[in-house]
Simulated assay, not measured.
Amino acid sequence: MKHLEIGGRLNGWDNLAQGSRRLKKRNLWQAIAEFINKTLIITELEVRKLRHDPTDLIVRAVQPVLWLLIFGQVFTRIRGIPTNGLPYLDFMAAGILAQSVLFVSIFSGGMSLIWERDLGLAHKFLVSPTPRAAIVLGKGVASGVRCLSQVLVVYFLSFALGVQLNFSAIAMLGVLLIVMLGAACFSIFSIIVACLVKSREGFNGMGQLMTMPLFFASNAIYPIEIMPPWLQFVSHINPLTYEVDALRGVMLLNGTSIYGYGFDTVVLVLVLITLTFIGGRLYRQIGM
């Protein structure tokens, strides 16, 4: 009888432990699903703003046009820049797409947050049950959607200029994925800066301070090999370098990736996760 009692108790404890583990697992998946759902809601709210004022996309489209038509045409005549056998305009096209994504995401992410604070909208987000990380990530994903227009502009102009583009479905999906990741990274980075700066004037100055070093300390318009050693080190820790490298590998018909598309994607995902965590922690400061 005692053995039966002990066995029954042990079975009861086993069943209780299994039920507890199933409950924890179910709660974890529910929390992840809720986080994704709230992130998509924030993304929808941000994308909805584009329908009311699409002029910003038209203005931003001017920048890659000027770079490809003027800068690209001039530097095509210079033979001293090693491009691994690619025509310089082909080499530059991926870099200009990444640059356009950088500029749009930097100025759309942080500046929109400052406007929301001035209008009192940020305080409403702060008192809502939405996780701060979901708010920040949703804004980053929305910035990626905003940057898709830059893909159309750069592709159209590059094709018109004779750049050998890869129009396969897999390559196009790869380009969209990298653009979304890069835009989200730099948008959240600008949100972090906006949380610290807190004023439109200060952020405008910081925006220029962020974009130009990130752009020129990358492989967007020249290879890393011709940089001085200290700038090569900066380039290797610059996320834009890996975005350009991935785009150059999948966007161009004869393009190659130095680090590999998978490695570039992993780097951008890790940067995105890290910045989302930091941005979520700092977001509450926007209401102070």
Rank of each mutant, 00 (worst) to 15 (best):
F71L: 06
F71I: 06
V74G: 04
V74T: 03
V74P: 01
F75C: 03
F75A: 03
T76P: 07
R77A: 15
I78V: 12
I78D: 11
I78G: 03
R79N: 15
R79L: 15
G80T: 15
G80Y: 15
G80I: 10
I81V: 07
I81N: 02
T83V: 11
N84G: 05
N84D: 06
G85S: 09
Y88H: 00
D90M: 14
D90C: 10
D90T: 13
F91P: 03
F91I: 05
M92V: 08
A94R: 08
I96A: 11
I96L: 13
I96R: 06
L97A: 02
L97R: 06
S100F: 09
V101Y: 04
L102V: 01
F103L: 07
S105K: 01
F107N: 09
S108P: 02
G109Y: 04
G110P: 05
M111S: 11
S112M: 11
S112W: 07
L113Y: 11
I114A: 00
I114Y: 00
W115H: 02
E116W: 09
D118I: 09
D118W: 15
D118Q: 14
L119T: 13
G120E: 03
G120N: 01
L121I: 13
L121A: 13
K124R: 13
F125A: 10
L126F: 12
V127R: 12
V127E: 15
V127S: 14
S128K: 00
S128M: 00
P129T: 11
R132S: 15
